[in-house]
Simulated scan of single mutants.
Amino acid sequence: MRGLRGEAAIAGVAEFAPTRKPEKLWMGLEAYSELARMALDDAGLSISDVDAVLTGNNLQEAQMFVPATIIEYLGVESHFSEVVDLGGASGAALVLRAAMAIEMGLCETALCMLYTQAHHRNPKAPPVNYARDWGGGVWGSPQAEFEIPFGAVQGTYGYAMIANRYAHEFGLTDEQRAKVAVDQRTNALAHPHAVFRNTPITTEDVLNSPMICSPLHILEIVMPCMGGAAVVVTSKEKAAKTKNRPVYVVGGGENTTHRSVTYEPDFTHSPIKAASDRAWAMSGLKPKDIDLASLYDCYTITVLLTLEDTGFCAKGEAGRFVMEHDLTYKGDFPMNTHGGQLSFGQAGIAGGMSHVTEAVLQLQGRAGDRQLRKCDTAFVNGNGGIMSEQVSIILRGA
């Protein structure tokens, strides 16, 4: 099939350590500037090399013209500028779009950056209305009329509904879901910047933690925090001259089917399958060829569905699969070796970018104590909304 030819590579990454109580209150433009500096330094490139800027839609200083505002502040001239609004899938989507633009000849070096400012809003700004802002319940929306008045607010209820339906159709135990959280916490213990780097947990800890929305316990749900990340994607020719092992983007796919869980076509078969199928076909690789699975994990049930719909195991077998495999960086199926968002931390819209940066660090042999003995290929999946917006990318080291 037509698609990426592996002519664009990730050359550098940068990430703020996720934190619940930031030591420095960055304004958005300050944060993006620092992330750009760090990522370019990591790659051995300079701001003069940059000719494309891709970001999310949550810049405090501008509700419109977001790329232009960042471009102006950085002092670059961009030949390709993009805002991506795919929630947790935005990180993978930025990288995919940058690779596409580079291969088409629209630009040569792209900065892909995401940052969350949720923990230092303007004190004069109105309080966050999560039912409206996260739930999409603005006047006139289906959510405002048919969901929010009945208590269907935010994501947890939606993922709990998915977990319950999955258990009804295929069988799923609390212990199987908990295994995901426990193994990822083990990975976080080896990451010096993870929010939960000093707090091991057991299956019993997960099952005894407070029930938030049945059947999901608090230790099965992401830890919101503050943070940000940046990725430098550049041409194959320029990547060969940078400091780190080039990480080529060799496959990608995207699929969006709905906004609200109410309109989800099928609770147990997600849009991930169509996105990942395209990525696999484009790359020529198969699940058995992958050394690292870096899968979006806002909830434990998200991981289980992703394992199935990306082809790492058959439909209905994810519970058995996680019990039969060691998902830690020491194990036979390394997954989310940074701890995932469940234990590394979820920095808002930037949370999904941690799956990209971790995959790059592993492929470049720079993951420290959690480094895999062999890592030449990685599969990354980003998930937005309530299992609704999906982006899969496949990365391969030079």
Rank of each mutant, 00 (worst) to 15 (best):
A125I: 05
N129Y: 02
D49T: 02
L29G: 04
V53Q: 00
G135M: 05
Q117N: 14
G87L: 11
A101T: 05
L40Q: 12
A52T: 04
W134C: 12
A93C: 04
A144N: 07
L54D: 05
G44A: 10
A110T: 08
A89S: 11
V84K: 00
M104W: 12
I70V: 02
D85Q: 03
A36V: 03
I102F: 11
V128L: 15
V95L: 06
G136H: 03
L59M: 07
V83E: 14
Y130I: 11
P142E: 08
W139F: 13
V76G: 01
S141I: 05
Y73I: 01
E61V: 03
R121Y: 10
L59C: 04
N129M: 11
A131D: 13
V76D: 02
L114N: 06
R37F: 08
G140D: 07
G75N: 00
T69Q: 01
D85K: 03
L54K: 01
C112W: 12
I71G: 00
H119C: 09
A110S: 13
D133Y: 06
D41R: 03
G75D: 00
A31E: 03
G88W: 04
V66C: 03
K124H: 14
V138F: 15
A99T: 13
G44C: 11
S81Y: 08
D85C: 05
G91F: 10
L114S: 03
L40S: 10
T116F: 04
P123N: 06
M38R: 15
A43D: 09
C107E: 13
R121K: 09
M113D: 00
L94I: 01
C107H: 08
G137P: 04
V84W: 02
C112I: 13
G87D: 08
T69S: 04
M113F: 09
G135E: 05
I71V: 11
N58C: 12
G44P: 10
A98H: 08
M64Q: 08
L111G: 06
G105Y: 08
E30L: 01
M104T: 07
N122D: 15
D42I: 06
L106W: 15
Y73N: 09
G140W: 12
G75Y: 01
R132N: 13
V76I: 13
A99S: 13
